[in-house]
């Protein structure tokens, strides 16, 4: 029994890890392709059919570059920076429910690496550690521009974490649970949270852009003011890890958006599919549904990137502290009143 669980969980973890890596790889290609398409170009199309092998070529190039180590007293931290970024980006995927359950050889397999009660808190905790990867790497670079970039990135991420947390509280009041699995299960059918929490979704969406350092909140990278960004001193695969971590966290935050607000693996008619086609088929379709939703959000990230110019720094802070946080608090109050009203406890 115990070995079966270990094997089952190992397979799941490896599968989720592989999926995250693959998606991050192909997100880089998708980014370039979408950028090209939105600008009436074709994009990379030489490596493989239609450019399908481009991520491999990029990776090979990064691997073959010289690993430059700047003259810094913090060599250990310099190496630790990208490692933290990368592991944090990958750790979040542990609690995501990819589907309800599968039935293999009489065993019920939950399509989730770990089902912990405080999954949502775990996600937030791990995401906030992400800022350390950037901060430590830039600090160890012994370069004032890198440090300035990291200051921008970290103050931005910390500011928007507040609004993000507040927007989630309204959702928690509705769902009454922190487990992502239960939140997903509550949204069966078309009972998606986005219909009940549109403002919360909007705040969460804007904050996810800020958390992943994507345009219009990509102030951490700026050639004109900061030479490069927090990774100016990095080269070879360490640099690759930073870039890769950005795409991995984009993938994860797209998934979380889909799970929290867009019904996770649920699709209309899932109940019917379970009864008629069996649990396995229904859940594989469910996984594909989740996959389609998160792909849409990844596309959305890129779509926004090529539409909206970046904020000025004071605008960024004003939006975070003076707009989103009051709005999130108001959202909590409105949600509370609605819940009381629907329970008949108001007045």
């Amino acid at each position: 029994m115990d070995t079966a669980i270990i094997i089952e969980k190992s397979v799941l973890i490896v599968a989720v890890f592989a999926l995250t890596m693959l998606m991050a790889m192909y997100a880089t290609l998708a980014e370039r392709k979408v950028a090209a398409w939105l600008q009436d170009r074709i994009g990379p199309n030489r490596a493989g059919k239609g450019g399908i092998l481009q991520p491999l070529a990029d990776g090979l190039k990064l691997f073959s570059k010289e690993e430059f180590l700047p003259d810094t007293p913090n060599k250990f931290l310099f190496v630790a920076g990208p490692a933290i970024s990368m592991s944090v980006a990958l750790m979040t995927s542990a609690v995501i429910p990819w589907g309800d359950k599968l039935e293999i050889a009489g065993r019920t397999v939950i399509m989730q690496a770990t089902d912990i009660d405080v999954a949502l808190l775990y996600v937030f905790g791990v995401l906030s550690v992400g800022v350390y990867g950037i901060m430590i790497g830039a600090w160890a670079s012994n370069n004032k521009f890198s440090l300035m970039s990291a200051m921008r990135a970290s103050s931005q991420m910390i500011s928007y974490e507040v609004a993000m947390g507040l927007s989630i509280i309204a959702l928690l009041m509705m769902t009454g649970t922190l487990s992502l699995r239960e939140i997903a299960a509550q949204q069966s059918g078309m009972n998606w949270n986005v219909f009940y929490q549109p403002v919360g979704f909007l705040i969460f969406l804007v904050c996810s852009f800020a958390e992943t350092n994507r345009t219009p909140f990509d102030l951490a990278e700026c050639e004109a003011e900061l030479i490069g960004g927090y990774h100016t001193e990095y080269s070879s695969m360490r640099m690759g890890f930073y870039l890769f971590a950005e795409y991995a966290s984009m993938f994860i935050s797209s998934t979380i958006l889909a799970v929290l607000y867009f019904g996770a693996y649920n699709y209309p008619g899932m109940q019917w599919a379970v009864e008629n086609w069996g649990v396995n088929v229904a859940n594989i379709i469910g996984f594909l549904a989740l996959f389609a939703k998160l792909c849409f959000f990844i596309f959305f990230y890129m779509w926004v990137r090529w539409t909206i110019p970046r904020f000025r720094y004071d605008q960024l802070m004003r939006l975070g502290w003076q707009m989103l946080i009051p709005l999130a608090i108001a959202n909590i109050f409105v949600t509370a009143i609605c819940i009381l009203w629907s329970d008949g406890n108001l007045f």
Binding site: W37, L38, D40, V304, W306
Partner: peptide, 21 residues
């Protein structure tokens, strides 16, 4: 305004590409 801008960019996804291979 942002939605309007995004509609413009999404329109470009389907226009004819000007690239000459």
């Amino acid at each position: 305004t942002i939605i309007k801008g995004m509609m413009i960019t999404i329109g470009h996804l389907f226009t004819r590409k000007v690239t000459i291979k």
